[in-house]
Design a protein around this nucleic acid. Structure first.
Length: 306
DNA sequence: GGCCAGGTGTACC
DNA sequence: GGTACACATGGC
C-alpha cells in the first residue's frame, strides 16, 4: 500500500500545481489524486517521494510513469538558454517536472480551458468526474475519488448534461470530441508512436482543439518536449521579457521559441509559465490595447479541417 | 460592475 | 491573407 521512489530535485507542489493537471489536491503535507483507476497520496521527503495507494494491487508502474521520475532534470535544464529571463524562471522553481498524463484526460481537460481560469477548470473537471466517473478505492475516512470519465461515457451523456457541469460553450466541443474518440474515428493510443506534426494535425481536426490545446496534449501526454504551447501568459511573457517595446506577432514568437529554447523547449515553457504566473503576475506586463490582445491567438487552425 | 480567464470557430474584409 | 467578435461562467 506504500512505496518510496528515490529522486532528487522533485518539487511536488510546483509540479502538481503548475497548470498541467487539474485534480490533485493538497492535504496538509501531502497531495492526493487519481492516476488511471488508482487513488494515490504523495509526500516529499529528503531524497524520496513517498506514495500510498487506495488498494493493495495498485498500478505503481503507472504512477511511476505519470510522475516523470526518469527525466534527467539537471541535463534538461542545462540545455535552456542562458539569458536572464530563462535563468530567473529556472531558479524560481527548481524541481518542477513535466508529468506524463493519459492522453484522453489531458485532451478533455484542456478542451475546457479556453478563456477559463485554472481554478474554474479544476471545478469543471471535478464536476465531470463526480458525475460521470467510476468511483475508485480510497482509504477509509478519505473523501470519495473517481476515475476520469471515458470518452464513451461523455459522448453518451451528451452536450446538455455536460453543460450542467458549468462547461458553457465548451460543452459542445467536449461532446463532439468524445464522440469522435468513442466512435474510433480517431484513436488516441495509436497516435503515441506517430510523428509530432502528424499527431498535432490529428488533434487539431477535433472540434474545439486548436494549436494551443494540441500542443498541451503533445507536451503533457505524448511527452513531445519540443512542443511549446503558447497561451496568453506565455505570449505576454515572451513579449515582455524578450521583446520589450516591440510587439511581435504570435507566429513570430512561435518561430522564436522553436529555435531559442532548444530541444526541450516544452520544459522551458513550463518553467516560464509557472514563474510568471506565481511570481510575476499579470500586472508585471503592460496591458495591450483593448481588442487586440484577446484575439491574437486566432487563425492558427487550418481552414475547414474538421 | 467591468474586466479577464492556459482559445477556438466563424464571418467578415 | 488578416482581423473582429461570439461563445458561458465565475473570480477578483
Amino acid at each position: 500500500m506504500t512505496a518510496r521512489f528515490p529522486v532528487s530535485d522533485y518539487d511536488l507542489a510546483a509540479t502538481l500545481d503548475s497548470g498541467q493537471v487539474f485534480r490533485w489536491q493538497r492535504s496538509g503535507e501531502s497531495w492526493e489524486g487519481v492516476v488511471g483507476s488508482d487513488w494515490f497520496q504523495l509526500r516529499s521527503v529528503p531524497g524520496f517521494l513517498e506514495a500510498a495507494s487506495g488498494r493493495p494491487d495498485a498500478r505503481w508502474d503507472r504512477l511511476r510513469d505519470f510522475l516523470g521520475l526518469e527525466d534527467p532534470l539537471g541535463y534538461i535544464c542545462g540545455t535552456f538558454p542562458q539569458d536572464p529571463p530563462m535563468q530567473a524562471a529556472l531558479s524560481a522553481c527548481p524541481g518542477l517536472r513535466l508529468l506524463r498524463q493519459d492522453p484522453w484526460e489531458c485532451l478533455a481537460s484542456f478542451l475546457l480551458s479556453s478563456t477559463k481560469q485554472i481554478v474554474q477548470i479544476r471545478q469543471c473537471v471535478d464536476l465531470l468526474c463526480r458525475r460521470f466517473g467510476e468511483p475508485v478505492a480510497v482509504p477509509s475516512g478519505c473523501p470519495p475519488a473517481h476515475r476520469f470519465p471515458d470518452p464513451e461515457r461523455l459522448a453518451q451523456a451528451g452536450e446538455a448534461a455536460l453543460r450542467e457541469c458549468k462547461l458553457g460553450f465548451r460543452a459542445r466541443y467536449l461532446a463532439g470530441t468524445a464522440l469522435r474518440i468513442s466512435e474510433a474515428t480517431l484513436d488516441l493510443e495509436s497516435l503515441q508512436d506517430r510523428p509530432t506534426a502528424e499527431v498535432r494535425e490529428a488533434l487539431m481536426s477535433l472540434p474545439g482543439v486548436g494549436r494551443k490545446i494540441a500542443d498541451c496534449v503533445l507536451l503533457f501526454a505524448y511527452r513531445r518536449q519540443e512542443a511549446f504551447p503558447v497561451d496568453v501568459w506565455i505570449l505576454r511573457a515572451l513579449r515582455g521579457l524578450y521583446f520589450p517595446n516591440r510587439r511581435p506577432k504570435l507566429r513570430t514568437l512561435m518561430r522564436f521559441a522553436e529555435t531559442h529554447f532548444g530541444p526541450h523547449a516544452g520544459y522551458a515553457q513550463q518553467y516560464l509559465f509557472h514563474h510568471v504566473r506565481t511570481h510575476l503576475g499579470r500586472a508585471a506586463f503592460a496591458k495591450p490595447k483593448r481588442g487586440r490582445f484577446r484575439n491574437v491567438l486566432t487563425s492558427l487552425k487550418p481552414h475547414g479541417s474538421h
